[in-house]
Each structure stands twice: as C-alpha cells, then as structure tokens.
C-alpha cells in the first residue's frame, strides 16, 4: 500500500516530535517509494519496535500462561486433597457410627450377662431355700412320727398318756398348721425354679 506525501510527512513528524510510531499488521502492507530512504528507515524502525513489543508481550503472555497452568494444576491437587480429606472424614464418621453400634451391642450384652448372673444367684437362693424347707419338713414329720409312735406305744402298753397325749395333740396341731405353710413355700419355690 502506498502512502501519499501528506500522510508520509505527518507520520514522520509524529515520530520525530512525539515519538509516536505505527504498529501492528498495517506495517506489513505499507510500502515506501524507491529512494525514499527517510520513510524506508521510518518503516524499519516501526517494524522493529512492533516486533520488539510483540516479543516482549509474547514472553509475558507465555509466562502468565505457564503460571496459570501451574495454578490450575495446584488447584486440581488441592481439590484432590480436599476429596481425600472428605473421604477420610466420611470413613472416620462411619467408623465412629460402627463403634457406637458395637458399644450399644456390648452394653446390651453386659446388661444381659448381669441379668443372667442375677438369675443364677436367685436360682441358687431358691434351691437353698427349697433344701432348707425340705429339711424342715422332714424334721417336723420326724418329730410328728416320733411323737405319734411314742403316744401309740404308751396306749398299747397302758402307760400314763396324759402328758404324751397333750404333747401329741399340740404337735399335731402345729404340724397341720405349719404343713400348709411349708407345702405352700415348697410349691412357691418349685414354681419359681421351673419358671426360671
């Protein structure tokens, strides 16, 4: 593209007085007339300045681009770490929940074991009571039988029955009174033992 004399002079004036030069791709289409060494030199200066500024800008842009890529990579790394952290947190929460469940199960087992122990103790106590009641029954029955035999012997041998008769009567009364209580206790113990 040719530039007329007025434009040429204005461009040179701008460059000389204010150091303002053309830049950009327009420089690649402007041509100077043969022999116009001043304008040829002006265009060369413009092209060199444009090239230098583009090289500088390219270098800066590349640097920024590189930094951006590094930042993006770091961001990805951070995101990945955050995901790992979140997963670890979730796992810890799950483990805590599991531990709580296990603790509940353990507490239930402990309660059950305590209940069983209490039951065994009660059972032993019931067995002991049963034994005592049985022994007491045998003692009462023994005394009753012995007194009856003695009373019968006194009647048969025509001996004095005044004392032994009242003793037998009292003993029989006590035996009848207590027998129901003893039988009731035995039945109660038996019922409790069977139930357990």
């Amino acid at each position: 593209m040719d530039v007329n004399k007025i434009c040429r002079d204005e461009l040179l004036k701008l460059a000389n007085e204010k150091r303002i030069y053309l830049e950009g791709n327009i420089l690649k289409v402007i041509s100077a007339n043969d022999g116009d060494s001043e304008f040829i030199e002006y265009l060369n200066i413009c092209k060199n300045r444009d090239k230098d500024s583009r090289i500088k800008r390219l270098s800066v842009t590349k640097q920024v681009q590189k930094q951006n890529k590094e930042l993006v990579a770091k961001q990805k790394e951070t995101d990945s770490l955050m995901i790992e952290l979140q997963n670890a947190l979730d796992s810890a929460q799950k483990a805590e929940e599991e531990a709580n469940k296990l603790r509940e199960v353990a507490e239930k087992s402990k309660d059950k074991a305590l209940e069983d122990l209490d039951l065994i103790q009660k059972k032993s106590q019931f067995k002991l009571i049963g034994t005592i009641v049985r022994v007491a029954l045998f003692v009462i029955l023994g005394v009753g039988i012995l007194t009856t035999v003695m009373y019968a012997f006194a009647i048969v041998t025509d001996k004095e029955t005044q004392i032994i008769g009242s003793t037998w009567s009292n003993m029989f009364g006590i035996l009848l009174t207590n027998a129901f209580s003893i039988v009731g206790t035995i039945m109660g113990v038996k019922y409790a033992s069977d139930k357990e």
């Binding site: 444009d50 583009r54 590349k62």
Partner: peptide, 16 residues
C-alpha cells in the same frame, strides 16, 4: 484459552 489467542497472534505476527 484467551491467553493462547494472544500467544498465537504474537507468534504469527513475529513470524509473518
């Protein structure tokens, strides 16, 4: 990538 637009433009200009 906008930054690459600038890189490409400058590279194309420098290399004519």
């Amino acid at each position: 990538e906008d930054l690459f637009h600038l890189v490409f433009e400058d590279a194309c200009s420098i290399l004519d």
